[in-house]
């Protein structure tokens, strides 16, 4: 469903993502781990068509995001890192706008919006202005936007960031549930999430994949049975000089 083929992104002379290749199949939830600045968000922005890659390609459901961006984008639901929203709109207005821009209209639009509100438990705030919502609700509104058109591929950039433990649990359950029928790529630095929600995980560091496997395999690889130890062993710290 998602095939990333030696994707590279350079900002000036700095290489943010360096010939990254991986794939996510239907029914898989891939956890995308790595320290801050490892290139996780940049990779996701390239797969979703926001950043054009310097070289390489990403295919979503077999459609190249570089060659056919408009078509590929219809297959993707994307939650950006900071969960950006049009704050002057109501939740309902925002979701209706997103549905319309996804090409939904009439009853299809209405039921898609209802379904997304239901999935993300936004019923109680649907008529409220986004400005007045708490962070958890805003995050869920943005997540609802990603689910509107029932995409085959979900790309979630730190979907649990800034949520309270209850909300984190709910989002993980949701990801797990959706992962049965979709291909999901989500980034996180919370290592316990990998065991809780992922079928597979990759660890990236400075734009390169440094570990790849099922949670069980990664635990075995760590030697100590702790993902934190593995993470610390394979990634570099930003206090160290660049290699």
């Amino acid at each position: 469903m998602i095939e990333v083929d030696s994707l590279t992104k350079q900002f000036g002379t700095k290489t943010a993502v360096d010939h990254l290749s991986f794939s996510v199949n239907k029914g898989e939830v891939l956890g995308f781990l790595g320290p801050n600045g490892a290139g996780k968000s940049t990779t996701m922005r390239m797969i979703t068509g926001f950043f054009p890659p310097t070289s390489g390609d990403a295919k979503v459901c077999g459609i190249s995001i570089v060659d056919h961006p408009a078509e590929a984008k219809t297959k993707i639901g994307y939650l950006p890192e900071s969960a950006p929203l049009y704050r002057d709109m109501t939740v309902l207005g925002f979701l209706r706008f997103c549905a319309a821009i996804r090409g939904l209209s009439g009853n299809a639009k209405k039921s898609a919006v209802e379904r997304a509100i239901d999935t993300c438990s936004l019923g109680s705030v649907a008529a409220q202005s986004i400005d007045t919502l708490s962070k958890g609700y805003r995050h869920r509104t943005c997540l609802a936007q990603a689910l509107l058109h029932d995409p085959e591929v979900l790309i979630l950039d730190e979907p649990t960031d800034g949520l309270d433990p209850n909300q984190k649990h709910e989002v993980r359950q949701l990801i797990k549930r959706l992962g049965q029928t979709k291909a999901i790529l989500f980034s996180t630095h919370i290592l316990e999430e990998v065991e809780a929600a992922c079928t597979r995980a990759v660890i990236v560091d400075r734009g390169i994949i440094v570990a790849d496997g099922t949670p069980a395999e990664l635990l075995a690889q760590s030697g100590t049975g702790s993902l934190t130890d593995l993470f610390r062993a394979v990634t570099s710290r930003d206090t160290e000089p660049a290699a």
């Binding site: 922005r45 979703t48 068509g49 926001f50 408009a70 078509e71 984008k73 219809t74 993707i76 994307y78 950006p80 900071s82 950006p84 929203l85 049009y86 704050r87 997103c98 821009i101 996804r102 090409g103 936007q145």
Partner: peptide, 14 residues
């Protein structure tokens, strides 16, 4: 400023 350009840029609109 709000980052909504990232939403707009990933919607199927030119």
């Amino acid at each position: 400023r709000n980052g909504t350009i990232e939403l707009l840029g990933t919607f199927p609109v030119t």
